[in-house]
Design a protein around this nucleic acid. Sequence first.
DNA 1: AGAATCCCAAGTAAACTAATCGGGATTCCT
DNA 2: AGGAATCCCGATTAGTTTACTTGGGATTCT
Lengths: 148, 148
Amino acid sequence: MRLSTRGRYGLRAMYELALHYGEGPIPLNFIADKQMVSVHYLEQLMAKLRRAGLVVSSRGAQGGYELSRPPEKITVGDVVRITEGSFDPVQCLSNDFGDDDCEQFGDCVVRLVWKRLRDSTNEVLDSLNLRDLCDGTIDPEDTLSEKS
Amino acid sequence: MRLSTRGRYGLRAMYELALHYGEGPIPLNFIADKQMVSVHYLEQLMAKLRRAGLVVSSRGAQGGYELSRPPEKITVGDVVRITEGSFDPVQCLSNDFGDDDCEQFGDCVVRLVWKRLRDSTNEVLDSLNLRDLCDGTIDPEDTLSEKS
DNA sequence: AGAATCCCAAGTAAACTAATCGGGATTCCT
DNA sequence: AGGAATCCCGATTAGTTTACTTGGGATTCT
């Protein structure tokens, strides 16, 4: 249950883009410098995020990446689901898994456990958006912050 | 963010032991048959659980494994943390990670996200014990069941 | 004695991770 | 027009992890 660098770098990159939202395209080498990651590796992550429609890119000099919509419209879950893959802890929770693929699909007790785990993961990560990260108002103690 | 077979088989094995709690030692081949897993592979998982004190073993004929305490005293989190490893999604959340190991340790925004993720994971998995699994009273819709 | 079981350590094929490498296609700026 | 800056794409690779398998030894019951 460890996040890969894809999810970590991906979110950090998106956080950086959120900080500079509205300032035009930000080149990857700017982000790479801040994070000590190779531009090439970041490119792979950004390609995924671009195909998913979370960022738009402009090529050529003065080009770069920017968020496709305002930071408050992009949740942490949006980002991590793309870069890291879905949160389904087990295969039998994914959409393309049929009843026939596991003989005890219907009444599998442990499956309910993994379902809860997935749901709570989605809930936590979707309760935070990129604006929240920029504002720095996340309470480290709260698990699920109630936004008043 | 996918669970390995260790966490899945481990919990299923413990669920099986919980179902037969009080009936004396259950041999591994009984569990292996039900789960279509090799006895040898299960042995590796049970070794971890035994070293962690969650099960006790008896050797020789008529031997096997049994829970070291009643099912309601063992949470799903207890089991999965042992077989799967801790839930720290990133290294900088683990105990042996010092402030010096990451220059922005103190005021790292994304780290707060991963912290929340870890806390909610622990919360969900510790809210269920092996007795709950046996009772079959888990509501598939609830993320965190309130036991009344 | 012999069967059933747990115990331990090593080996292994396949997949995955985290990159790196090399080059091509656009676009801006002068 | 030329050159620099940038994104874009696909291949390769070293290292790690996963999910086992193999082979045997120790203990206990009958």
